[in-house]
């Protein structure tokens, strides 16, 4: 199981890009933290989610 934004999900084995495709997250406006490291966008299709991984996906909103 992979913990994503506090929820345990059975997505181990998928790449991060494959997981994101099943969600409403828009890769253009997010930042992904995996096990306390930021995952670069260029690695979304290389990073394979593993059992025990902890992810936080932040979706930026406008205004500054």
């Amino acid at each position: 199981m992979v913990k994503i934004n506090g929820e345990f999900l059975p997505v181990d084995g998928k790449t991060l890009a494959e997981y994101l495709e099943t969600t409403s997250f828009d890769p253009v406006i997010i930042a992904v933290e995996r096990n306390e490291e930021i995952v670069p966008k260029s690695a979304y299709n290389k990073v394979i989610l593993k059992d025990g991984d902890i992810l936080e996906i932040v979706s930026f909103v406008g205004g500054g």
């Binding site: 253009v28 406006i29 997010i30 930042a31 490291e37 930021i38 670069p40 966008k41 260029s42 932040v58 979706s59 930026f60 909103v61 406008g62 205004g63 500054g64």
Partner: peptide, 27 residues
């Protein structure tokens, strides 16, 4: 939001020794 995300991405890809403090959600 696209620019916020781009900056985070570039900083951690190319300048990973830096600290980044970002702002999102204050409207």
């Amino acid at each position: 939001p696209e620019e916020k995300s781009m900056l985070v991405d570039c900083v951690f890809e190319m300048l990973s020794d830096k600290y980044l403090v970002s702002g999102s959600g204050m409207a």
